[in-house]
Amino acid sequence: MPSLPDMNATDVVDMARRAAEHQAPRDHHIHNEDLKPALFEWLCRMGDSSLILGHRVSEWCGHSPVLEEDIALANIALDLIGHTQMWLGLAGEVEGKGRDADALAYRRDAADFRNFLLVEKQNGDIGSTLMRQFLFDAWHIERLRGLKGSSSERVAEIATKAFKEVSYHVDRSADLVIRLGDGTDESHRRMQKALDSHWTYANEMFTDDGLDEAVAEAGIAMRPSGLKPAWDALVDEVLAEATLTRPQNDFARRGGKTGERHTEHLGHILAEMQFLQRAYPDASW
């Protein structure tokens, strides 16, 4: 910590005082060989869902129905890509094979991606995009809330940062789901249709598997099924206010977060997203 005995500007002294003597936290999980494969893949799950949703949302840039929405969607996409850099950056560090966030984002094939099926779905109309966003945001905020207390300090610091931003995302998407659901007959009809269409995809977010189990046992992240009660509470509250009917279907479409069976849409996203890096590796300008 620099001491600033001979400085007069009080604000600078104050700034230095506030600049905590804080190095990047040491995290024993990062170097745990037994946990490494599971932690790497779990971090890819977090990063890939942010990356693919961020890319999907960015497709609206310049095409939104109103200027404010265009700006909001672009900003949300930016936040999600920012989270991706942190999650995939840490994933690359854990893997220890010299791959950074860019290498993981741009040089893996569809079968290696671990994102939820929900986020690779095509945008559809703005109502469908916003409903998908709300269902994801409601999961995301609960996921991050829990991760702030992760036994992995590196995971916790990413979650603490992202949580603040995602609280704005969920605030906005909930607001718009209510406005459009409880809007005109046409907007109501479209929002209900979007909800019905996304529902079984959203259920994947709460499926547990062996990898979740390993990460939960290490105290890194709660089992996905454990996030369901809080998600249900928020979703039910917002849907009620939006005069929308919650689908009674617990079936979960699976295969995204395990990478076993992505939809055909993921390949198209990657073709567009990865083209430049594939054609001109490490291009810079």
């Binding site: 910590m1 620099p2 600049a19 905590a20 804080h22 996409a77 930016l78 850099q85 931003e165």
Partner: peptide, 20 residues
Amino acid sequence: RDVRIEDETVIVAVTPTYSG
């Protein structure tokens, strides 16, 4: 967040405002 000097290198620690 921090300024320090190690081996003739000035190290400046910066924290992002928003992630993206």
